[in-house]
Design a protein around this nucleic acid. Sequence first.
RNA 1: GGCGACAUAGCCAAGUGGUAAGGCCGAGGUCUGCAAAACCUUUAUCCCCAGUUCGACUCUGGGUGUCGCCUCCA
Length: 475
Amino acid sequence: MRTIQVYNTLTRKKEVFKPIEDGKVGIYVCGVTPYNDPHIGNARPFVTWDTIRRFFAKCGYEVHYIQNFTDVDDKIIRVSHEQGKTWKEVADHNIDVYFQSMDALNVRRADVYPRVSDTIPEIIEMVQGLVDKGYAYVVDGDVFYSVEKFKGYGKLSGRSLDDMMAGARVEVDERKQNPMDFAVWKSAKPGEPFWESPWGNGRPGWHIECSAMSLKYLGRTFDFHGGGSDLIFPHHENEIAQSQAFCGSEDCFAHYWVHNGFITIHEEKMSKSLGNFFTVADILKKYPGEVLRFFILQTHYRSPLDFSDERLKDAQAGLMRLENARRNAEELSAKDGAADTAKALAEAALSAKESFYTAMADDFNTALAVSYLFAVAKDINVYYNEVVNQGTAFDKENFGKAKDAFYDMAEIIGIFEAKAEEKSDEDAEIDALVEERLAARKEKNWARADEIRDLLKARGIVLKDTAEGTRWERA
RNA sequence: GGCGACAUAGCCAAGUGGUAAGGCCGAGGUCUGCAAAACCUUUAUCCCCAGUUCGACUCUGGGUGUCGCCUCCA
């Protein structure tokens, strides 16, 4: 099997990926807290991981992909109070919106989307285990994890407990033995959802759910754990502390930690707390989801990605180029021909595909990989031109090979999946006008032809005459 | 204050110890009744200083700048 290298946050270097079980890969990606609309910064890890898992699947791996919903949380409770809804209604609604957003970005569904509210027994069991082993202590119905008890605390984020103490800027709960201790179980306050537990009515702390869910669905040890780099500390650091303390071995939990960089606005992190964000839905009003997806993948996942309307436009222009090559490829494939004119094209495409896979295998370098997609697109366009405009005889067999390679790469990037839209009445009317113009042109009635073109232009319709007819699209 | 990342053409963005992928924009061209669209061609010596080396954008040290984490956050 192809050698895949991955940058591991834990070791701060690229490592050769060795699956725990041959031919299989287990992935746990931190999902969202469904308290409002997902913004495009939220979307980045999911687009990234969707691409990574597509790649693994293409390489022949059996992928197990788990992504949670933290549906029991302070923010959800707050929103539910504000909106006069139950926490469940808030979570369910936002999970629906989340799926709509991800569908638009061609993000395939994870195998399981566990929710905190469905994992309470496992969480309680884990908290109890931590208490039993002396890693957690109970105070007034709250349960805290004792960071000093876990000697590896800080290994993921690369800081020592002393560093953290020095930098502590938060008000410390007096009941904590160490300021860095964190809650694994919180006692219920009036008006909050709660579950019964050995420590009284309460709910899980923030980090424990991922430890419990990954254990439940992927086992004590699994291959990848991913998320945004802002989760490295404290979230993932705490997950490691919980999981490895619980199972009693440093080998437990994720082997490779993969963190994506942020999306920024004017070079500043996009975040809900800063309020400088665009929701995925905002973007979808102006651009197809594939454009946003492509925009994200044109930059390496670990680099920061500065968002602006202009850059999204650039990405769209690039994607259109690819789409156009695809249309040309479709048009050519409909032809027959047994000439031997596309041998070089097929070879170049296969070679580009190999380079594409090599790029992906080097820490999922989608930015480099995409360049090979453009290379093949160019070759296809050139060949299209030769066949359609210069009368070169068509080579169906070799062209088919090139086209397959092109589509194979596109499938990993997750483009060319736009759903066919149903023709509206307006579309039919436009089609009719386009037909009329074609007829007018045949009769060299340029006045009428131009009149129709202008008419459509005024309605925001752009015509594209080609050798095979006229395509049109909304500007 | 502690820890870390990054600095490549007008814009975005890969990358390698041996003279820089790709995209956007711009320019030129092909096609077209004209146009649009499409397509083709074309555009850099890699923040500054010093060092290592036959040779550095790529390694080391220093500087400057930007950003992030340390608090909820993808």
